[in-house]
Amino acid sequence: MTDSTHYDTLDVSPAATPVQIKQAYRRLVKLFHPDGNRETANHEQIVRINAAYEVLGDPQQRQSYDQMLLKDRQRHEQSVSNYSSRQAESSATYTSARYQQADASARYQRQQQADTESRYYAHRQQQANTENRHYAHRQTAIDADEQLEQWLQKVYVPVNRLICRILNPLADQLDQLSADPFDDELMEQFQAYLKECRNYLKQAQLAFRSLPNPANVAGAAVHLYYCLNQVADGIEELELFTLNYDEGYLHTGQELFRIATGLRCEAQYAVKDIA
C-alpha cells in the first residue's frame, strides 16, 4: 500500500505521544511475535512494526519523518491539479524510495557511530597514560602511598560497589521475568531494574573520572574502565530486548555482563597484589 505510513503500521494517530507509540509497538509485537501468540504470528508484520518504531520511537527521526510526510502530501496535492495520474503514480514511487533511503541512512549512521566508539575505546588507554604522566609531574610533592589510598577510597571502592549493584541482581531479575516475558507487570519490574542500572552506571563513571589513577594501579584502572564499557553495552542490549522481545539482545546482554564480571575480578586481584 503506497499510502501506508509508519503511523498506519503502528495503528496510532500522527499526534500520538511517545508513550502511546511505545504502548502500541509493544502491543503489536506481543500480538505477532511467534513466542507470544502462535495463532497470529507474522514475521513480515514484525519486520514492518520494528521499522516503523525505529523511526517513530526516536524524536529526531520522527520529526524528520513528519516533515517528509508533510512535504509529500503538499507535493501530491499540487500534482493532482498540475499533472496527470501517471505523474502522480511516479511521485508515490519516489516517496517509497525516500522512505527506504531514510531507513538505510539511519542504519549507516548507527554503524558509523559504533565504529567511532570502537576507535575511541582503543584510543582511551593512550589518553589515560598521557593524563597519568601529567598528573605525576604536578603531584611530585605528594607521597605515593597517600595517592594510592586516596584513589582506592574515592575511586576504586565506590566504583566496585556500584558495579556489583548492577551485575549481581541480573540472575534473579531474569529468573523472575522468565515466568512470562510477555507479562506487563514483570516486564515493568525488569525495566525498573535497568533504570536503576543506568543510574548506578552514571555514578560509577563520574567516580572513575574524578581522580587520575596512580601508576602502580594502572592495571586495575584499565580493568575497571573496560568493565564499565561492557556494563554500558550490556544495559543497552537488555533495554532493546524489552522493546521487541528478541532473545538475541537478551543473550548478548548476559554475555556482556559476564565479561564485565570477569574484568571486575581482574581489577580486584590487581588491587590485592598491590596491597
Rank of each mutant, 00 (worst) to 15 (best):
D103Q: 11
T17A: 14
R38S: 12
L201T: 04
A270T: 06
F32Y: 15
D66I: 01
S118K: 14
A141W: 11
D143M: 11
Y120W: 09
N213P: 02
F257N: 01
Q203I: 06
S79A: 15
L263W: 04
D180P: 12
V157A: 13
Y53T: 07
C227T: 03
N132T: 11
P59A: 12
D58Q: 10
D184S: 09
L177A: 02
Q109M: 09
S85V: 12
S91E: 12
K195R: 08
E239N: 11
A220N: 04
Y156M: 04
V155A: 07
A51D: 13
R161Q: 12
S85N: 07
F257C: 03
A128N: 08
A24Y: 00
Q254Y: 01
Q153M: 12
P214Q: 04
D233H: 06
N129R: 12
V29S: 05
Q254L: 09
Q230Y: 15
L162I: 00
I259Q: 15
A136N: 10
D172Q: 11
L162G: 02
L70P: 05
Y65V: 03
D11R: 12
L174H: 02
Q153F: 14
P169H: 08
E149T: 15
L228D: 05
F208W: 14
T5R: 06
E149I: 15
D180F: 03
P14N: 06
Q45S: 11
H33Q: 05
S85M: 13
L170W: 04
L170C: 06
Y225E: 03
C227D: 07
M68C: 04
N168L: 10
A221Y: 04
Q150R: 15
K71P: 00
D58S: 07
A136E: 11
S118Q: 11
S118A: 15
V55N: 01
Q268K: 04
L152G: 01
I163N: 01
E54Y: 13
D72T: 08
H123C: 04
A106N: 07
Q101T: 01
Y121D: 13
Y7K: 03
A128I: 12
A215I: 09
V55A: 05
I163S: 06
L28C: 04
L174W: 08
P181A: 00
A104G: 06
Q254P: 06
L31S: 07
E185Y: 02
G57H: 08
C197Q: 01
T116C: 03
Y225G: 05
S178R: 10
D233T: 06
A92F: 15
